[in-house]
């Protein structure tokens, strides 16, 4: 059995290792490693389209993860205060936001937003005093919102789990000692759930940064890094893509390790 498990772990990691290795290949081809070089990183980072896509992805991932962390934490705190029935409805919706395949989330968001814009844009044009009324369209906003849906559901679940295991005695002791609810929240609840909030943020960031399929539908004229990489892959495999893939893989691994480490923090540091 150990041999089998070892083989599975090799199966999981060898392909990634190969991409990383060949990103440092001096030659162009996958079949031969002709020498160590970082030239493909240079090529990748001097490609303006790629850098633009990378910046877009970083902006979208940061914004959607921040929004998700705030709204998701608020929702988890709110859900701890409602009845069983409201909770069940919320849990079902949050579960759906996580389980429904990205393709379906992507197309349904696309359809709904296009219909919404068809109503809102003429209205904005009619009430706008100037010559150039604002025109809503697909882009940053729609990607952030669509990514935020999954991320918020994720944060709500992670923080909710943490709230469930919160030490109630501390909360009661705090209010027995005449702390205001706000003080209790700030000095007892928040420090205890903070690792879960941070982990949720990091995972939400990772999800948004890595997502291709949802963004593919709702990006409009914008490009994210995965969309750019997908388009280049379809034109042909180049060592430049290995370099980008390595950067993205290393970033994801760091974020996930950090998130796991946060989740394992049993006690607040102070």
């Amino acid at each position: 059995m150990r041999a089998f498990v070892t083989a599975v772990f090799a199966f999981l990691y060898l392909p990634i290792a190969l991409v990383v290795l060949f990103s440092f290949n001096a030659g162009r081809h996958a079949s031969e490693f002709t020498g160590f070089s970082v030239q493909w990183y240079g090529t990748a980072l001097s490609n303006p389209f790629l850098v633009e896509a990378l910046k877009n992805s970083l902006f979208i991932a940061t914004t959607s993860a921040l929004l998700a962390a705030v709204c998701g934490t608020a929702a988890a705190l709110g859900l701890a205060r409602v009845g069983v029935r409201t909770r069940a409805v919320f849990d079902a919706l949050l579960g759906a936001a996580i389980v429904v395949p990205g393709v379906v989330i992507g197309i349904s968001t696309l359809v709904a937003l296009v219909q919404l814009f068809a109503v809102v844009n003429p209205f904005l044009a009619s009430i706008w005093p100037g010559d150039q009324p604002p025109k809503l369209s697909l882009g940053y906003g729609s990607i952030i919102a669509a990514h935020g849906l999954f991320s918020m559901a994720l944060v709500t679940m992670i923080v909710g789990t943490r709230l469930g295991s919160l030490d109630r005695n501390l909360v009661e002791a705090s209010s027995d000692l005449y702390a205001t609810p706000l003080t209790t929240f700030r000095s007892i609840v928040l420090p205890q759930i903070m690792p879960a909030v941070v982990a949720g943020f990091l995972l939400a960031f990772t999800f948004s940064f890595d997502d291709f399929i949802v963004a593919f539908f709702v990006a409009g004229a914008q490009t994210t890094l995965p969309i750019y990489v997908f388009a280049s892959i379809r034109r042909g495999v180049t060592p430049e893509i290995n370099a980008i893939a390595t950067i993205v893989l290393v970033a994801s691994v760091l974020l996930v390790v950090l998130a796991q480490w946060q989740l394992r923090q049993r006690k607040p540091s102070n």
């Binding site: 991409v19 291709f212 893989l249």
Partner: peptide, 11 residues
């Protein structure tokens, strides 16, 4: 949690 796109690309 690592990009499915990049992992599929590896194959």
């Amino acid at each position: 949690w690592t990009s499915l796109l990049m992992r599929t690309y590896a194959w």
